[in-house]
């Protein structure tokens, strides 16, 4: 199809541009020059060494892991409750409650961060890693709810009825039938919310009370030319890690859809 070929070429170029920065990133991370400019001068891994030797960075890494693991756990747990309730039961006010849970998707992050900041200041709560987690759960929950809703939706209600019919209780039905079948969705939700949290900058910067996390470390480093090459090395590793997690998440999501006997209708959103 002639028309299809033109569109295909366009789409491929579009994808290349989309990936441009991510492709350029490792080029400079392995480039033996202190300034980030073409032409490239030579191959080196010294930026990676420099990066790994940085004590501040190691501290930021540990903090980020604490924040992201907590966020992923909390957001996924709350997401399971919301998605299960919305998919399985009908109750008055569902539109408003589910809509409110999804609101952070369309609110600029600065508004979310500042509103939370005001509340925390007013309540006299000290800013810390914990307050970052509070904010991250809020912005990660919509994604968890979206992924888990589709996982619960692809679950045939008669499977649960069949288990009840065969003598199981409500809880053992959930454990034996529902949980195993939505487990891929739960894993996908965990990985996605983890990724959102580890990459998030604004909330981490303003609600962290000066505790260093990776995204803030990267932001700060980029403002000083001398620290740019090591931070490119860090960025390369972060991006590679994100893509790895996403690929795993997508694998689980698809397996979940296939397992529950549903039809694959698209990506995460």
């Amino acid at each position: 199809m002639k028309q299809g070929l033109g569109l295909r070429t366009y789409t491929v170029i579009y994808l290349l541009v989309l990936y441009g920065p991510i492709i350029i990133l490792p080029l400079f991370a392995f480039n033996d020059a202190t300034t980030v400019a073409f032409p490239l001068s030579g191959f080196t891994t010294k930026w990676f060494g420099q990066m790994l030797a940085d004590a501040n960075l190691r501290k930021a890494l540990v903090n980020s892991l604490i924040v992201s693991l907590s966020t992923a756990t909390l957001a996924t747990t709350l997401g399971i409750l919301a998605a299960r309730s919305a998919v399985r039961y009908s109750w008055p006010g569902k539109g408003i409650v589910m809509g409110s849970i999804m609101v952070p998707l369309v609110l600029p992050e600065m508004i979310v961060a500042m509103a939370l900041l005001v509340l925390l200041l007013a309540a006299g709560i000290k800013l810390s890693l914990f307050t970052i987690i509070l904010g991250h759960v809020l912005i990660a929950m919509p994604f968890a709810v979206a992924i888990l809703s589709s996982a619960f939706q692809s679950l045939d209600k008669s499977l649960e009825e069949a288990a009840l019919d065969l003598g199981e209780t409500g809880w053992s039905t959930f454990r034996l039938i529902v949980l195993p079948l939505v487990m891929p969705g739960i894993l996908a939700s965990f990985l996605i919310t983890f990724t959102i949290s580890i990459d998030e900058f604004i909330i981490a910067n303003f609600l962290g009370g000066g505790e260093p996390v990776l995204s803030v470390f990267v932001f700060t480093a980029f403002r000083f030319p001398s620290t740019v090459p090591p931070v490119l090395a860090l960025g390369t590793m972060l991006v590679a890690f994100s893509i790895l997690l996403l690929t795993i998440a997508e694998y689980f999501r698809r397996r979940g859809v296939a397992k529950a006997g549903g039809k694959d209708t698209g990506g995460f959103l």
Binding site: T11, L15, L18, Y19, G20, P21, I22, I24, L25, F28, V36, A37, I192, T195, I196, I198, D199, E200, F201, S215, V218, F219, F222, V228, G235, L238, V239, S242, I243, L246, E250, G266, G267, F268, L269
Partner: peptide
């Protein structure tokens, strides 16, 4: 295809924006 289109969105926003400085 959708997965390929969405991947860059999921990688660090700060890093992607910062890279445009160099580009």
């Amino acid at each position: 295809w959708l997965f390929l289109i969405t991947i860059p969105f999921w990688t660090s926003y700060v890093i992607r924006v910062a890279l445009w400085r160099t580009i």
